[in-house]
Each structure stands twice: as C-alpha cells, then as structure tokens.
Design a protein around this nucleic acid. Structure first.
Lengths: 212, 212
DNA sequence: ACCTGAACACCGTTCAAGT
DNA sequence: ACCTGAACACCGTTCAAGT
C-alpha cells in the first residue's frame, strides 16, 4: 500500500517547497522523491507525469487564497478588488512558481466554485452573464500578468544586468520615470482603472438571490 | 571565423521556429544546432547559455511589432490601444513562445526606444511621468496576461480534459457563461475598461515637444 | 586561436526483475 | 499485486584534444 502520508496533496506541497527554494529550473522528479524520502519513482504512483505535478502545484497555490474571507456581501467591486489583491498576494508569495501558475488553467473544484460565485455576484449587480465573464477574465489576466512581471523583475534583479545608473550615457527618460516610482505601486492604479472602466457595463442590480 | 550567416539574429530566428513548431518542451540546444546545420556546441560561441537564447527569442518576438505603424500623432489613447493590440497579435502568432516572452524582461534597444516614446506621448497628454509609467506597465501586464491565458487555453485544448457538455451533472453557471461568449472577445472589453479608467488620471495636455 | 566532439553530471520515464 | 531501481533516451555545459 502507499506509504502513509504520501498523498497527492503532500507531494504537491513538497514540490511547491522545492520550487520556492531553488526555482523551477532546479526542480526535478528525482529531487522530489528525495525530498519526500521515497523511491524517486514513487511519485508516478500518484501523478501521471511532471505536468500533472505542476498542475497540482498551481492548485496548491490557488488553495492558499482565503476565499471565505472575501467580502461576498459587499457588492461586485469590493469582491473583484479584494479577490484580485488576494490572488496577487499568494502569487507574489511564490515568485519562483508564478510562471507555473500562469501557464496552466486551474480546474480544481475550489477554483471553479470561486469562479461561479464571482459570476453570481457580478450578475446580481446587473452585469450580463457574458460581461460578468469578460470582466472576471480581464481582472484575472491583469493580476496574473502583474504578478508574473513583478516576479520576473525581482528574480532577474538577482542575476541580470542592471539598468544604468543616473548620469551614465544611456540613462534615459524611461529609467528616469522608473526611478520616480517604486517598482510595484502601479497595480493599485491599474486595478482601480480597470474597475472604474467596468462600472458603466452593468445595468441596475437584481434582487434575485439576495439574502434579506 | 564564424560560419557566414550564423549570427545571433539567425540563431534566435531558428530557435523561435523550433519553439513555434514543437513547443518549448521539445526545444534543446542540440536540436538548435542540428536545425542550423552546425556543430551542436557552435551556438555557445554566440550565446552564453540557453537563457541567453531565450532572451534573444523574446527580443525577436518584440521586433515583429511594427512600431512605426503606430498612430504616434493621434494621442495617448490611440497609441496605447493600438500598441496593446499589436503586442497581443505578435504574441498570439507564437502561442508556444508566449510564456518565454512573458517570463523575461525585454531590454533590447528597440523595446527601450518604444517605451520611451510611449512615456513621452503620455506625458505630453498631461500624465505625470509616474502615472505615464504606471499606465504603460498596467497595459503591458494586461496584454501579456491575456495573451498567456489565451495561448494556455488554446494549447491545453489539444491535450487536456474538456469542460463538461451541457446537461452533464457538473455543468454549471461558469461553463454556461463560458459558452455564452466566444473564447477571446473579452480583451476588447478589458482594454477599453482600462483605458476608460485611466482617462481621468491626466491633466491638461502640454504643448511641449509637439510638432506644429 | 579557433573549433570539435567526447565526456560529465544530470534529466523524465519505462519496464524487467524482484517481492 | 505491488514496488523497486536499472536502463533508455535524452538533456546543458565543459573542456581536453585536435587543427
């Protein structure tokens, strides 16, 4: 029988730890087995292949979002904003794993349930089902794009060439503007703009499905 | 001397072709040498390592954007919108390479020049330098996030499990809404919302640097 | 000085051999 | 029936040996 404690969830958690610690490039199925203290091939009893492990890692990251803590009763904008920040936060907590998350669709029951709940909030607020989906996708893409960009810059800062110092010959308007703002304060602006721009899409709110 | 025609640009183009054809997972330095008809190690005379090749692939994709065709004289919104669509288009032309592009900062002179020009358009329109940078970053992140999501879904559709058919037990609101809209018509909505939401950020346009 | 390819230290995955 | 680990077909990269 499978070793006690060697579940899909435990394996995924170990894989995420390894990626967090050493980066995706240093991850291997063999090291995963070693970390778990089992035969290197034992993981194949629970996962079809490496892709399957990465899918589970993405799910594990999603599961860190405390979806129950979202302001589900406070309207579409509060839900959208808080969800976006929550997603960003769990992604930035795992900079080495953001690309893994961003390059596969998460299809776990928890993520489907959250998606459904969000669509319901949006339609209750007066969005058509189609617009509800468009808005939720756009928010998700902005958030993931942002987290990926930030993680890339932060990780790259450890190993890649720096932008020129002030006064260097190719110091330019772009670098100047980049210095004028902290590296990661633009998500607040971008997200607010997106939400502002979506506000005119919805009609009058419906009372269907509202708690009294 | 290096074989005639074996330049960094030629190698990067061959690498992009290989990735386009077979996906990033099937790419290798050895296959790249074989495709070029040279010793497998010859590429190391022009690139430090595989990462360096991937950086050049990202630059090659960026270079496909016809930045000269952008409406530079038509105001910030026209520039922002057309640039975002142009970036999306070149990314979606290379679905297997989107993740490679999205996970590294492009630092080529062409991309820096375009970034500077965009900031200049924004500031001329009355954005502060800081807001100009925030807006351009948010647009870029939305666009890359969108392209990555779409490429992931399209590539995944070839190999992964389908969402349930209508009538199946777990068919749900999310799948229903997903059916109600085509897979990729939400970028127009998301981008328009972002631009609408940014419109209030800028002050009155400046005449500095304007052509008469 | 430049180029080549053998060699090293790894991979993911399969599957014959054990129990 | 289940588990193990040897073996296969690869990798990226280095570097000694050639020219």
């Amino acid at each position: 029988m499978p070793r006690a404690g060697l579940t899909r969830a435990a394996i995924a958690a170990a894989a995420l730890e390894l990626i967090d610690e050493n980066g995706i490039a240093a991850f291997s199925m063999r090291k995963l087995g070693a970390r778990l203290g089992v035969d290197p091939m034992a993981v194949y009893r629970h996962f079809r292949d490496q892709e399957d492990v990465f899918d589970a890692v993405a799910e594990a990251i999603f599961d860190e979002i405390e979806t129950d803590a979202l302001p589900w009763e406070e309207g579409w904008r509060a839900v959208a904003e808080r969800y976006s920040y929550a997603l960003r936060d769990v992604l930035l907590a795992h900079p080495n794993a953001v690309a893994t998350f961003a390059t596969r669709p998460v299809r776990s029951q928890a993520s489907i349930d959250t998606g459904v709940r969000m669509i319901e909030v949006f339609t209750a607020a007066g969005f058509t089902p189609g617009d509800a989906l468009r808005v939720s996708r756009s928010l998700r893409e902005l958030t993931i794009g942002h987290a990926l960009s930030l993680a890339t810059v932060r990780l790259g800062a450890q190993t890649r060439s720096r932008k020129p110092d002030p006064g260097a010959p190719d110091y330019n308007v772009l670098a100047e503007a980049a210095d004028a703002t902290t590296i990661d304060d633009h998500f607040e602006v971008g997200l607010a703009a997106m939400l502002d721009g979506c506000d005119h899409l919805h009609g009058p709110p419906s009372d269907l499905g509202r708690d009294p």
